[in-house]
Amino acid sequence: MSEPTATRLIQPPARVDVAFSLTGERVPEEHGYALFAAMCRIIDDLHGASWLSVHPIPGEPDGDGALRLRPDELALRLRVDPAYIDRVLPMAGATLSIEGHVVTVGASRVLPLEPVADLGARMVTLKDGADRQEFEAYLRRRLDVVGVRASVEIPAPKGAAAGEHPDGRRVLHIRQQTIVGYPVILRGLSAEDSRRVQCLGIGGRQRFGCGVFAPLRPPG
């Protein structure tokens, strides 16, 4: 695995979240690529949009590979450069088919980023595959490069669910590719570092829900 190269402190770009309600029952638990593909069928110039990251859709696992949507939640969240807010507003009112699960997108709200001390990402990927220990060490070096100080946690699996890897890794399928990553929690961030992590993200494939950090959800 190659080492990150130290550079001058990276200035984070401006970012806000554009959040939409979703009406429907379920979405696939692994939906990053399918969600982005469905969005591109509505707004066809999102491919290669460096100003866009897409949060994973939250929900309750149903034990059958899907997430039950929570009612009255702004479940579709797009992190964008404020200059491009108008580019994603046509999502409102659209119907998305995500691997056969149909959801309807509701009205939008523009939300500022919250500079909280603890952030989480469902999955962070880096260029090379790595086991848990290698990944954690590389992640710490990556944070050093962007000038962020935090306590790093890689949550362990909660149980022996079917297909769950014992070290907690997750996978993202993009056509014929299988991308490996891990869930990440960062704790003890300063307000400045929290904004930096949320604006920059960590790692690639952020349009597919990877490396996008947000305040931790309360349990339950």
Rank of each mutant, 00 (worst) to 15 (best):
M1L: 14
Q198R: 06
P13H: 11
G203P: 02
A34M: 04
I174L: 04
A83G: 14
I185R: 12
D167A: 05
A19H: 01
E114H: 08
A162K: 11
C199T: 13
V171F: 15
V54R: 01
S190W: 10
R77N: 10
A150S: 13
Y138V: 11
L69G: 03
V105L: 11
S190H: 07
A121G: 05
V116E: 04
D144T: 08
D62T: 14
S108I: 00
I85K: 04
E29F: 06
P166Q: 08
V152T: 08
V27H: 11
L78C: 12
E114K: 08
D167G: 06
E60W: 11
L119H: 07
D64A: 11
V152C: 04
R122C: 06
R141I: 07
R87Y: 08
L189S: 03
R140I: 04
Y182T: 08
G181K: 00
D131N: 15
R15Q: 13
C40A: 12
V80S: 01
E192M: 07
P56K: 02
M39L: 15
P90L: 08
V54A: 06
G100F: 12
D167S: 05
V18A: 01
S2Y: 12
D167L: 06
L69H: 07
A117T: 13
V180T: 15
L35G: 01
G24F: 02
D193Y: 06
A156F: 09
V145Q: 13
S21V: 00
A75E: 06
R79C: 11
A6L: 10
